[in-house]
């Protein structure tokens, strides 16, 4: 028996109806595994934010979730446009969304900041025109 459970999800391009499927699937597994509710909450929120980002900005991609005995690692990889300025993107409230979209309540500029806030560790690798890989870890206990 291996030391981790690996789950892979394809996030489809521009399909809002399916955004959140991967995070809710992971959530239901964690709930069957005596993972403390607080860790489940952190995984659910950070992963959903990441998933929706992939749909909106990056034409979808692949999420790999690895559940090991001490932590949950989520790797969200896309072949999207890349992030120009990570520091700026990490600022709460910074958004590339145009004003009309923001008026509609989207693009609050909380995507990456929330992912950072709800995960215990976060790393972003990005290259313009090539894609972005966000790795987030949530520790159990």
């Amino acid at each position: 028996m291996s030391n981790s459970i690996k789950l892979t999800y394809q996030v489809s391009d521009d399909d809002f109806t399916r955004a959140g499927e991967a995070s809710s699937n992971v959530k239901s597994k964690l709930k069957m595994m005596n993972v403390p509710p607080d860790a489940i909450r952190k995984v659910a929120i950070s992963m959903y934010e990441g998933e929706i980002n992939m749909v909106i900005h990056a034409n979808g991609g692949t999420i790999t979730v690895e559940i090991s005995k001490d932590c949950i690692t989520m790797v969200l990889a896309d072949k999207g446009p890349g992030i120009k300025n990570i520091e700026q993107a990490m600022q709460a409230g910074f958004s590339t969304a145009p004003d009309n979209i923001r008026t509609l309540g989207f693009g609050a500029g909380m995507g990456l900041p929330n992912m950072k806030k709800y995960s215990d560790e976060m790393d972003i690798q990005t290259e313009i025109g090539v894609g972005t890989t966000v790795t987030m870890k949530v520790y159990i206990q």
């Binding site: 597994k29 709930k31 069957m32 595994m33 005596n34 509710p37 005995k69």
Partner: peptide
Amino acid sequence: EFKPVFKLGKTFAESFDKMQQVE
């Protein structure tokens, strides 16, 4: 109070092994 009725095992370690078997 939370009643975790859907858990697979008594502890995380036990549930972890059982989830692997489920997969």
